[in-house]
Amino acid sequence: MEDIKSTIKDYILKEFLPGEKPDNLTESTPLVTGGILDSIATLKLVSFLEERYGIRVEPHEADVDNLNTLNDIERYVQSKLPNA
């Protein structure tokens, strides 16, 4: 479980928050409402999730409900995994 969160955290830090201290990106840091993920960044994150976990993200799922925090993303990815 922790793998998903840390993998995504690493990806977000690398792609969208270069130079940011990892500790500042917490499990509850708002990514969408906080302005870290704009529409283009959201699309890149979605592509990453689809490739990394082999899931298919529907257009209406790429929103604040599922992608706003690391916790939300982890929960969402888990729900989409085949053994969920």
Binding site: G19, I40, A41, K44
Partner: peptide
Amino acid sequence: NTLYDARAAARKTATAGLD
């Protein structure tokens, strides 16, 4: 601009925005 942003995001340096 969207295309530019999409490409520029990949070129961000580690210190961009902070210093």
